[in-house]
Design a protein around this nucleic acid. Structure first.
Lengths: 116, 116
DNA sequence: CAGAATCCTGTTGGATACTG
DNA sequence: CAGTATCCAACAGGATTCTG
């Protein structure tokens, strides 16, 4: 599988750009936030819509986002157990960025199609 | 130095989100684009405004962005030689994202300040 | 000035197997 | 279902040194 995106370490003094990138810069993170924007999703649902993400990475990213207060994790009693993830109010703050990323990505695709 | 942002590998089928993140996800990349948005900058100017970036990384990112057509590199004759980097028209397409990232980052900062 | 080259370390993240 | 644990290869990126 081709590496499409690289990750970034930003040993950098705090600034708005890196503050935000620190949150959304993780692998799969924009995708996770995007998919939660339309409502709560279960772990397996997220795995399904972000097909190639491993359980390990998805767990890792979800935990990070939870620690940062971007989303909340709710365990629903039952057997088998289900767990729901939902964006917090803070998490919603990132939607303008995610939307902008998506729009520009789409525009790049259109542009590439037009050129070639 | 604290790691403020992580980097991401996204072994992922192409989608608008990862297409765009593939470009801006690299370390320092948002900062580079941001600093070029107000006009061409020389190598040393970029190093100055992105203080902690090493020459190696700055070079690497600039080359990547050049290869992707995001910016153009111009060698200005003279001694000592100077090199100018400028956003291309394609590069300008990323400004909405960079701006959104900056705005949200700022809002996060304000929010944190308000919460104490 | 604007890099290139080399060395070297920490981190990332996939694969696989196991669990309550 | 929703993870956890372990192993490991690949890569990122800092420090340092050298150059046209």
């Amino acid at each position: 599988m081709t590496r499409i995106c690289r990750k970034s370490r930003m040993p950098h003094p705090t600034c708005p750009l890196s503050d935000c990138m620190a949150v959304i810069g993780g692998a799969w993170t924009p995708n996770i936030i995007w998919n939660l924007s339309s409502g709560p999703r279960r772990f397996s649902e997220l795995r399904a819509v972000i097909p190639l993400v491993s359980a390990k990475m998805l767990t890792q990213r979800l935990r990070e986002l939870e620690d940062r207060g971007i989303l909340i994790r709710t365990v629903l009693q039952g057997s088998p157990p289900t767990v729901e993830y939902a964006l917090t109010e803070l998490g919603q703050e990132f939607m303008p960025v995610i939307r902008a990323i998506s729009e520009v990505g789409q525009r790049l695709k259109d542009r590439a199609a037009a050129l070639g």
